[in-house]
Design a protein around this nucleic acid. Structure first.
Lengths: 329, 329
DNA sequence: CTGAAAGCGCTAACAG
DNA sequence: CTGTTAGCGCTTTCAG
């Protein structure tokens, strides 16, 4: 059995109230008393029980990060990055962080679990229904890397439109006109942002978007290789490919290499996310960088503001992105 | 304010004890009563408060996964895989999972936090000191992917020696004799296992290990490229390279490609971990597969056994590994 | 500056 | 099958 505040109280000869104060408001306790208490605590190897404290204070300082994403690796590099930011910042606020997939969360038999978190960060493709469910339970919600209409909560996003614009502009500056895009079938929000931004950017540069230059791929390399191969094999093929993410772009690189094309001379390729795989290929992949870590940190900050009761109406934080140019373009 | 068990008790006209039973031992309550209670709960939007429950029960069902690893991406693909397994299994047992880096954990000002976890999974390069610190607080410990002498706890490992043996055997079967190894500077336990296993395997095949074929690299691509370049540039270079992990092996692939060597004809390359980057290169990387997800799941199972009081003395679980052969060899 | 005492929401005997 | 009641360990008025 772990020692309780009562044990310390007895051993040090002061009341439990004073023990409690010693730990959380040391300045309200005379130095001599405080030292007596601390010594007793040391002897007993006591440290305050957070559960009891949470119970008395009616707060848990516990938040959750829920990844809403179907199958495939849940904690892929992208979410792992966000996750790290969340972990880091949670710690700064002394929050406890629960991480789970949406799927597991729902499957949890003990729905009580939900009741002890005070805020949740929803990553990926969360539905409005889920948001409302939390808000109904007085649990604050922040959404990252996704946006759904009509919800009253803070969003943390990266600048998909500008990132895409930079990618296209870069290719145009390199002299490309026949620019293809391989769009993806992953997060609907992200995919449509990037796709629409691509169309807009092409427009801005006065370039025509031929439908035969627009393809769709599953977010895995095999699918991307297949799609890119078909794209490059047609006559009058594109001279540049913009991939909706790095995995897809790497698939395009592989397809090009297998077709004997030289990169970037015959075909230039640009990806999105600037993940570690950009440096595994030869040549290495130019890609739009997202500051995932910072996104995660900001999520926690927003959540904290919400939990402190600082009213934040629907508020969108958009983080800047930039292009990391490498050998593939 | 959230509704309490008392509110439900009042509205449904039964005692709080019955409400409690309805939620956690429904079979001990008459159907009619149960339905009355559930209806009241629904109306009030009540669900049991886990904190109060934890308090009364004197248990939290809360465990932690602590990643002990310096800088660089904490949640790299390897740990993310283990992490997913842990998440999945935690859920099956209805445990709450706290994930943190060792660094953050220590920095946490509120050491009380520690008191409410009942078990911890230590990943990476944890020190004995840390283990003892937990055990002193009656917190159960399981260690994954690492082993330290003289500790009394379960270990979950993958078969590094056999994995390495398979890699070497594969290269020998492909006719290689001059096999080099680029060892790594990451987890000391893993690195020395793989290194020693390599020496043993070479021995078994009666092959000499020339010291000029043994190199050391930091666990990042740039370093590996550099090291591999030097390795391949010497006269009478190796015809095969075994990388201590995939990142290093990919560096070797890049070095070989840049030197104009053909893979696998001029030089064969094998990695370790079978991570997603194996399929990003051209040719793709042969690698030793580790079932990370399962490692994570087993960790939770071991921890659960420990927490249930089933005495498990120092016990080592070793998971099988296998070679995924791809184009690089 | 310190102590006494009333909870925080729930569970587990024990009685009925 | 259901109700009563005494805690679980801590915090926080309110007095002193």
């Amino acid at each position: 059995m772990n020692p309780t505040i009562r044990d310390v109280s007895k051993l040090s000869g002061v009341s439990t109230a004073t023990v409690s104060r010693t730990f959380f408001y040391p300045e309200r306790v005379k130095k001599a008393t405080r030292e007596k208490v601390l010594e007793a605590a040391r002897v007993l190897n006591y440290s305050p029980n957070a559960i009891a404290r949470a119970m008395a204070l009616q707060r848990t300082d516990k938040i959750a990060f829920l990844i809403c994403k179907a199958h495939s690796s849940i904690l892929d590099e992208f979410y792992a990055g966000i996750c790290e930011g969340i972990m880091k910042e949670s710690n700064a606020y002394d929050y406890q962080l629960l991480i789970s997939t949406e799927e597991d969360w729902i499957a949890a038999t003990n729905s009580a679990k939900r009741k002890q978190i005070e805020g949740v960060i929803l990553g990926g493709n969360a539905k409005a229904e889920r948001v409302l469910e939390f808000q109904n339970q007085n649990i604050h919600v922040v959404m990252v890397n996704n946006r759904i209409a009509g919800m009253n909560l803070p969003y943390v996003l990266s600048d998909e439109r500008d990132g895409t614009r930079q990618a296209v502009q870069h290719l145009v500056e390199r002299g490309h006109q026949k620019i293809a895009m391989i769009a993806g079938r992953f997060s609907p929000y992200i995919c449509s942002e990037r796709y629409n931004a691509f169309l807009d950017a092409m427009n801005e540069h006065g370039l025509k978007v031929e439908s035969r230059y627009i393809r769709m791929s599953d977010p895995n390399i095999e699918s991307a290789v297949e799609v890119a191969t078909a794209l490059l094999r047609q006559k009058d093929p594109p001279t540049a490919i913009f991939g909706a993410n790095d995995v897809i772009a790497v698939g395009a690189i592989k397809a090009a290499l297998r077709l004997g094309l030289r990169i970037p001379r015959d075909v230039a390729i640009v990806g999105y996310d600037d993940s570690s795989i950009c440096c595994t290929t030869e040549p290495e992949l130019t890609s739009v960088h997202i500051d995932r870590m910072r996104m995660g940190q900001i999520c926690v900050q927003k959540l904290q503001a919400l939990m402190r009761g600082e009213e934040i109406p629907e508020q969108v934080t958009v983080l800047p992105t930039w292009l990391n140019v490498r050998g593939s373009s």
